[in-house]
């Protein structure tokens, strides 16, 4: 297998803001690769540099061995790019959008109509192709965008947050479609801040935080690396801080328990890291009973990708997400994306 996409020591700043500080990863041909991270981590900027929409400060970018910076037009021929927000021309019909797309990718005229028909069938939007895109639902627009992005049969498909804002049905349709594409040999790079999306689709993942890659590997390997099991405990539906603190000090002393964290965002529930194999669950329950503390809910699980993220950054993806929402200047970012 050869390398389809190479990103090496990518750096990109917008003014004083270092959007990408150091991002490196490579994607094998035919692989689905996920870039996982909270909003504002630098995922979109990385993709914009790769797709020739932004010029990196420094670093190496290659598609199929072709330097994106030296031969941007060649790279564009090999790339299909599906932006996070579909930007259709609302006045055009779906079919007209496809025809425009075919022309800007220089499809031979003789092939255009059959190829468009094939893609419309495949994405199951044939029946709405003659309607203006302004009347499409979010899911239909995404399908149209996928159909358009794949019209020129790109070797590498890049998708920025492919299922943000989609209903569950459309989301699973997109997932199914991406798996089919992969099985036919397309290399896929997708960004997501949905853990389950990356877990379900990606063969390998790079976890990215504050403009840096902090971990790369298969989801299974990353989880195994973190080690231990997880126990989520809710003493009451909404536990008081004092009670949660009391339980924490009690449970932290148990021999099988490695760490206890109080999650204030989830009604002061307790997240425990425990040894794999031992019967930590009953040890915890016994200890709670001994201290006369009730149990609203308790569950044991293996580490998730979120635990991988937590172990690497010291915060959960959701916390990072919340923090990012507060500090991001969306208007400013929109301006940057226009440059």
């Amino acid at each position: 297998m050869s390398t389809a996409v190479l990103v090496e020591n990518l750096k990109k700043s917008y003014g004083d803001v270092e959007a990408v500080k150091d991002v490196s990863f490579n994607i094998e041909q035919g692989e689905i690769f996920g870039l996982l991270g909270p909003n504002g981590a630098g995922k979109t900027t990385t993709i914009r540099c790769l797709c020739t929409l932004a010029t990196p400060g420094s670093g190496r970018l290659e598609i199929g061995g072709i330097s994106v910076l030296d031969s941007p037009r060649r790279a564009r021929q090999l790339l299909g790019y599906i932006a996070q927000e579909v930007a259709p021309d609302k006045v055009l019909t779906g079919l007209e959008m496809m025809e425009l797309q075919a022309a800007i990718y220089h499809l031979p005229k003789a092939q255009t109509q059959s190829r468009i028909g094939q893609m419309l069938d495949l994405l199951e939007i044939n029946d709405i192709a003659d309607k203006k895109t302004g009347t499409y639902s979010g899911g239909q627009l995404k399908r149209l965008d996928l159909a358009a992005g794949l019209l020129h049969q790109p070797a590498v498909l890049v998708l920025d947050e492919p299922t943000v804002g989609l209903d569950i049905e459309s989301r699973s349709a997109v997932w199914k479609f991406l798996r089919q594409l992969q099985s036919e040999g397309t290399t896929i790079l997708l960004t997501s801040h949905y853990l389950e999306e990356v877990d379900a689709l990606a063969g390998r993942v790079a976890i990215i935080d504050k403009g840096k890659v902090i971990s790369t590997g298969t989801p299974a390997a990353l989880k195994a690396e973190v080690g231990g099991d997880r126990i989520t405990l809710r003493i009451r539906e909404f536990t008081t801080e004092a009670e949660a603190e009391k339980a924490r000090s009690l449970l932290a002393d148990l021999p099988l328990v490695q760490d206890v964290i109080i999650n204030s965002a989830q009604g002061n529930s307790l997240n425990l890291v425990v040894d794999k194999g031992g019967d930590a669950l009953s040890a915890v329950q016994t200890a709670l009973k001994g201290a006369n503390l009730p149990t609203f809910g308790i569950a044991q699980s293996q580490p998730s990708l979120d635990d991988v993220y937590l172990a690497a950054t010291g915060r959960t993806l959701m916390d990072a997400e919340m923090a990012a929402v507060g500090t991001r200047d969306l208007k400013k970012e929109r301006k940057q994306s226009m440059k």
Binding site: S2, Q29, D121, L150, P154, A155, E184, T187
Partner: peptide, 11 residues
């Protein structure tokens, strides 16, 4: 239906 041509596109 098949969507992608050959993965050889990259080669």
């Amino acid at each position: 239906q098949s969507v992608t041509p050959a993965a050889s596109g990259l080669n």
